[in-house]
Design a protein around this nucleic acid. Structure first.
Length: 201
DNA sequence: GTTGCGATGCGCT
DNA sequence: GCGCATCGCAACA
């Protein structure tokens, strides 16, 4: 905890540099903590895969704000996914948190995802949010906030050591710009989401 | 291990 | 209306 300023500073860097640094970081919400093993970069207004591509709307407003905030959105009628907003403030960029390994609060995480194996608890962006208990009410929270707001714990992020073995590849599940190798994961990690190569075309 | 498909509702055009 | 930064389950290898 050296701090919040450090975190904010790191996250305000170029998204393609920030993304790999988030590998190994720990996202905590209350009693449950997840060590991130897979992330995906969304860079600026010119990225056809990004929610910010078509300009600012009510939903993606958080992406246009300062780095270090959590951007949560609802998709596919039933799932919540979350991103860490990063980059300079005038550039809507974010890193989608795709998968991780539960490192604390295992019991609670299991109870939120009954029937799942421990390995699958946070394997996938929507699963990870569910395991952590993150929902749309957490959209816009400041991960580097020094104080917890009243009314319950807020998610926090702690950077880890820089991970050496990082693999990259194309992003997952996008229609636009599937070609950019902006997905990062820890090489050999089994908790990365199952990638469906060569989807429909 | 893989591939295929339906569920489901909000945000945007 | 349409599409979606997905998941879980069923079927198959």
């Amino acid at each position: 905890m050296t701090g919040c300023t450090d975190l904010r500073e790191v996250l305000a860097g170029p998204v393609l540099e920030v993304a790999p640094r988030l590998l190994g970081a720990v996202l905590r919400h209350g009693d449950v903590a997840v060590r991130l093993t897979e992330v995906e970069a969304y860079d600026g207004p010119d990225d056809p895969g990004s929610h910010a591509y078509r300009g600012r709307t009510r939903r993606n407003a958080t992406m246009f704000g300062p780095a270090g905030h959590l951007y949560c959105y609802f998709t596919y009628g039933m799932h919540v996914c979350c991103n860490v907003v990063c980059g300079p403030e005038d550039r809507p960029s974010a890193v989608l948190v795709r998968a991780g390994e539960v490192v604390d609060g295992l019991e609670l995480a299991r109870s939120r995802r009954p029937g799942s194996s421990d390995r699958d608890l946070a394997r996938g962006p929507a699963r990870l949010c569910r395991a952590l208990g993150i929902d749309l009410t957490h959209d816009g929270v400041d991960l580097a906030a020094s104080r917890q707001p009243a009314g319950g714990p807020a998610p926090t992020l702690t950077l880890g050591e820089r991970v050496e073995a990082v693999s990259t590849g194309p992003r997952v599940g996008l229609r636009g710009a599937p070609d950019r190798p902006w997905r990062f994961w820890m090489t050999g990690e089994r908790s990365v989401s199952a990638y469906r190569p060569a989807k429909r075309l």
